[in-house]
């Protein structure tokens, strides 16, 4: 046996190995070398698909039918005011046909309803016109608070709480009675409502003026909180009540009632003052005195606490 006999054998073996381990995998796109790595999915990696745009709501026509309501109320300076509110009938009807949401955590959506915003902004401007003097800011705020507190209280169970004289079809029947959170425009047209209706209307108006507010939910009551850095007026005969939420202080405001007295003995006429900011004890409700309310932000945006990507080192010393 000589070298010339051995070399072809070796050359053949090398060719077979090269074809099997290099050429074939290269042609088929498989990894070069021994073994198979299984199937790798073909195609490009997924791309970001932005959300489909949602058509904007058609604004209600200016020249359509409207509900006109006149509110006679007392400002905090004692002066009697009359304010007219107009609400497009189509808007009111649309609200009445909208099913209510059972989860009270979402009721901030009623206060911030986009369709009601023009009505609220207009009303807030007229009740509390912009003041040149910053010291007047508190009076603007209290006028607005007092305006809502003077809207008559009426329970959701009562047909008198609705301008149609009957319960709306989307009223929610519960063990404790009827629940029907009203949009601000509904409350204005009906001219009455219960605690959550007043709280929703007041937060909507205050939000239109730029105040940061939340709803305060008790077991049998709803009020609102207004964000203030410090509120401890010297005239207050009480310790202003506030609740902390995300590091901010929200002071209690009652939406449905004010301090009132009969003008004279035997008279049905009354006079009064607004229930002040932070005056939780004055409401007389045991729940307000004893419970810590659940704070319901008007704007709810689910925000994750964790979302940071940790860079992974690459095998083989890559960056």
């Amino acid at each position: 046996m000589e070298w010339k006999d051995v070399l072809p054998v070796i050359a053949g073996a090398v060719v077979i190995l090269v074809v099997a381990l290099v050429v074939k995998p290269a042609l088929l796109g498989e990894p070069i070398g021994f073994g198979s790595r299984g199937l790798v999915p073909a195609g490009d990696p997924p791309a970001y698909v932005p959300p489909a745009p949602v058509p904007t709501a058609t604004p209600f026509p200016d020249d359509g039918e409207v509900y006109t309501r006149n509110f006679r109320w007392t400002a905090i300076d004692g002066g009697v005011q009359t304010t007219q509110v107009t609400v497009p009938e189509a808007l009111f009807r649309e609200h009445r046909e909208t099913p209510r949401i059972t989860d009270y955590n979402t009721w901030g959506r009623y206060a911030l309803a986009d369709a009601d915003r023009p009505v609220l902004e207009d009303l807030a401007r007229r009740i509390a016109p912009p003041a040149a003097n910053p010291d007047e800011e508190y009076f603007r705020l209290m006028d607005l608070v007092f305006f809502v507190q003077q809207i008559p209280y009426d329970k959701d169970d009562n047909a008198t709480s609705y301008t149609e004289g009957a319960l709306p079809r989307h009223a929610m029947y519960r063990a404790g009675g009827v629940e029907y959170p009203k949009y601000p425009a509904e409350m204005l047209v009906d001219g009455r409502g219960d605690c959550e209706d007043a709280a929703i209307l007041m937060t909507g108006l205050l939000d239109a003026l730029g105040y940061d507010t939340v709803l305060l939910r008790y077991s049998d009551h709803m009020a609102l909180g207004i964000r203030m850095n410090e509120f401890n007026p010297c005239y207050a005969k009480y310790t202003p009540k506030y609740f902390e939420h995300e590091g901010k202080h929200y002071y209690y405001i009652e939406g449905t009632d004010f301090e009132w007295w009969n003008v004279s003995v035997g008279s049905t006429a009354i006079w009064g003052t607004p229930r002040a900011i932070g005056d939780a004890a004055g409401t007389g409700l045991p729940s307000v005195r004893s419970e810590t309310p659940q704070i319901v932000p008007l704007r709810y945006i689910p925000e994750p606490g964790e979302y940071r990507i940790r860079p992974a080192r690459l095998p083989g010393g890559g960056a």
């Binding site: 949602v54 959506r109 986009d114 915003r117 945006i301």
Partner: peptide, 22 residues
């Protein structure tokens, strides 16, 4: 997100959903 309207909140959440899908 402090001053978003309801429609803007909803749009914000739709964007969040799209990122989650991605």
């Amino acid at each position: 997100t402090n001053d978003l309207s309801v429609a803007e909140c909803d749009a914000h959440m739709r964007e969040f959903a799209a990122i989650a899908r991605y």
